[in-house]
Amino acid sequence: MNVDTLGYLGTATLALGCAAWTAIRAAQHFDRLFPAPANDASGFHGGAAAARLPHGVSMTASALRHGLPELPQRMRALPVDSRGYPVPYFAQRDGCEPDYRRCDSEKLAACVYYKRCCICGEQLGQYKAFVIDALSAVTRTSSMPPAHIECAKFAAKACPVIEKRIGVSLVWVARSYESEQLDGGLIFRMAEAEQTFWYIDGRRANRDEVRSSFEDSLPALYDAACAKSAAAVLELDTMVARATRCFPPHAAAAFVEQPV
Rank of each mutant, 00 (worst) to 15 (best):
G10W: 08
G17P: 03
C18W: 12
I24P: 04
H29D: 06
H29P: 01
P37V: 11
N39H: 07
D40L: 02
G43T: 03
G43Y: 05
G47L: 06
A48T: 13
L53D: 00
H55Q: 10
G56F: 12
M59E: 03
M59P: 06
H66L: 11
H66A: 15
L68F: 15
M75G: 08
M75I: 09
L78C: 10
P79L: 13
G84D: 09
Y85R: 05
V87Y: 00
C103W: 07
C103Q: 10
Y113E: 13
I119A: 13
C120Q: 09
G121I: 02
Q123D: 14
Q126W: 05
Y127R: 15
K128L: 14
A129P: 00
A129Q: 01
A129W: 02
V131E: 00
R140M: 02
T141G: 08
T141E: 04
S143P: 00
S143V: 01
H148Y: 04
E150F: 01
C151V: 10
F154E: 02
A156V: 05
C159Y: 04
R165M: 06
I166Q: 08
G167S: 07
A174D: 13
R175Y: 06
S176H: 09
E180D: 13
E180K: 14
D183K: 14
L186I: 00
E194A: 06
T196L: 06
T196V: 15
W198Q: 02
A205I: 13
N206T: 08
S213L: 06
E215G: 03
L218H: 07
Y222H: 10
A227R: 00
S229N: 14
A231M: 11
E235Y: 05
T238I: 03
V240P: 03
R242F: 08
A243L: 01
T244G: 05
R245Q: 14
C246Q: 12
F247T: 11
P248I: 09
P248K: 08
P248G: 07
A252C: 08
A253W: 08
P259S: 07
V260L: 07
V260T: 03
